[in-house]
Simulated assay, not measured.
Amino acid sequence: MCCLPSQSRTSAVAVRAARRSTTQNALAEVALLDAYAARDVLNHDIAGSRLTSEQSEKLGAVLTASGLGAGTLPPAHMQALTQAVDKAEAALRGLL
């Protein structure tokens, strides 16, 4: 860029900034569809630091709703879940 006129350099910088903004927005929008992606974007040094407060809040809400990072299930809930999965597996096997 050493040989570009000042206006061309300014235009090139503006184009790069627009692409970065578009990429950032697309990344945040896609992460809204996947809690693991939301967690990764929020925890990423660069991507997370460039999120708007609205994007951070939305991704945080996705993460909270998913239960990721909430810890383990209490034993009674784990047992109920295991029983439900076992029952569903048996039902599916019966359909084969």
Rank of each mutant, 00 (worst) to 15 (best):
Ser49Glu: 07
Ile46His: 03
Ala61Phe: 14
Thr52Cys: 11
Pro5Tyr: 03
Ala76Thr: 08
Glu29Asn: 07
Asp34Met: 01
Lys58Trp: 02
Ser11Leu: 14
Arg9Gly: 09
Pro75Phe: 13
Ala14Tyr: 07
Leu81Asn: 10
Ser53Lys: 06
Leu33Gln: 12
Ala47Met: 04
Thr72Val: 06
Ala65Thr: 01
Thr10Phe: 08
Ser11Phe: 08
Pro5Thr: 05
Asp45Gly: 09
Gln55Cys: 06
Ala65Lys: 08
Gly67Met: 02
Arg50Gly: 03
Thr82Gly: 06
Thr52Val: 11
Ser56Val: 03
Leu92Glu: 10
Ala76Ile: 01
Leu81Arg: 12
Thr52Gln: 05
Pro5Ser: 02
Ala47Thr: 03
Thr64His: 12
Met78Thr: 08
Gly48Pro: 05
Val41Lys: 05
Arg39Val: 07
Arg50Met: 10
Lys87His: 14
Val41Ser: 00
Val30His: 07
Gly60His: 05
Pro74Trp: 01
Ala14Ile: 01
Ser49Ile: 08
Cys2Arg: 15
Pro75Val: 14
Glu29Ala: 12
Ser53Pro: 04
Thr64Trp: 09
Leu4His: 05
Ala31Pro: 05
Ser53Leu: 04
Leu95Ser: 09
Glu89Pro: 05
Ala14Gln: 10
Ser8Leu: 13
Thr23Glu: 10
Ser21Arg: 15
Arg20Gln: 09
Gly48Phe: 12
Arg39Met: 06
Lys58Phe: 03
Glu89Val: 14
Leu32Trp: 02
Leu92Cys: 13
Ala76His: 09
Asp34Phe: 02
Pro74Lys: 07
Leu81Thr: 09
Thr23Phe: 13
Asp34Ile: 02
Asp34Val: 00
Ala76Ser: 11
Thr72Ser: 15
Ala38Lys: 02
Leu32Gln: 08
Glu29Ser: 11
Leu42Asn: 02
Ser49Gln: 06
Val30Pro: 00
Ala31Phe: 06
Leu27Gln: 01
Gly94Phe: 10
Ser66Ala: 13
Ser21His: 11
Gln24Glu: 07
Ala12His: 05
Ala37Gly: 05
Ala14Glu: 08
Met1Ser: 15
Ser8Val: 12
Gly60Leu: 04
Thr82Arg: 11
Leu27Arg: 03
Cys3Gln: 14
Arg93Met: 07
Ser11Arg: 13
His77Cys: 02
Asp45Pro: 15
Ser8Arg: 11
Met78Gly: 05
Gly71Glu: 10
Pro5Ile: 12
Arg20Thr: 01
Cys2Pro: 15
Gln24Pro: 03
Val15His: 10
Gly67Thr: 03
Ala91Gly: 10
Val62His: 03
Ala80His: 12
Ala28Arg: 00
Leu73Gly: 07
Ala17Tyr: 04
Asn43Asp: 13
Pro74Gln: 03
Glu89Leu: 15
Ala37Met: 06
Ala14Arg: 12
Ala14Leu: 12
Leu27Ile: 00
Arg9Tyr: 04
Ala35Glu: 02
Gln55Trp: 04
His77Arg: 12
Asp40Trp: 00
Leu63Cys: 06
Asn43Arg: 11
Ala80Asp: 11
